[in-house]
Design a protein around this nucleic acid. Sequence first.
DNA 1: GCGCTATAATCTGGGGTTCG
DNA 2: CGAACCCCAGATTATAGCGC
Length: 291
Amino acid sequence: MISFHIPPFPTFIKGAEGVFRKGDKHFKRTFSVFDFIYVKSGTLHMTEDKQAYSISEGEYIILLPGLEHFGHQVCAEDTSIYWLHFSMDDYQIVNKQSIDWSDIIKRESSFTESDYFNFYLPRYGKFQSKMALEQQLKSLIALNKVASPEERLKQQTLFYDFIIQLQKDAIHIPSAAEQVTSKVIEYLQKNYHQSIKMDDLSKALLYHPDYIVRSMKKTIGISPMQYLTQYRLFIAKQELVNSSNKISAIANKIGIDDSAYFSKLFKKEVGVSATQYQRLSKRKNSLEKQN
DNA sequence: GCGCTATAATCTGGGGTTCG
DNA sequence: CGAACCCCAGATTATAGCGC
């Protein structure tokens, strides 16, 4: 993700339509500005800073200033694109799985200061509302043809609209149920090693237990306790493979005090018993070493 | 721009079943 | 037996549509 603050908006420099013929590839160069490339049809193969991307129809990439980029593979078919160059003074690259609307506004305006927004654009992404965004790009580029400075200036405004829409497009607004689910998962992954009851979960998240269950079922299809069991078994399998701990020790580690119950659960869910699983994985490991 | 209404989404609580 | 879960009905809240 490219993270920056608004205002001021980034500055639009130039943009146009372009075509890579079959067999063409993107030139090797380093820019001093941002290069937004949207693929209208076909597929473009680009490498930026040693990271290879394949940008197919409906997808876009935002190349960063100062990093070398080039096409590492020729286009297999005619590939038409829109490109936009823009600049901006202050920005950061952050790792972010998903953006949330609550991250966006940083400061509410006062009488003397404007609103201040956190802005995030993915470096590589896909248009969700393809038609609308393509249309915006088209009208932005159409203004290249007009000579009057006044009309030209409109490109800036259109560009602002465009990046606002682009962010909106990239943001997934989580439903209430999804928000609850992700909180549940976070809690369970953090606390799986102790015994957890629905009541604890309810107290931690401040929701009615029944509501939590329904939210989870709606979004990922399983209940919190089922998820907990799956997650615990996932950890247990890793332990069985990577350590020689006793079954009871492993059971204890994943928050199940009763090792008999753990064995039963493991057999039921995984199909083989925990001890068998450990033996099998050890055998497989030693065979791989021989080869 | 305002207020009203219809509708959808969200949340809560009761009652009953299953299962460890 | 009780925790976990499901189903349902109803309250609350957010949102969209619409006329003034």
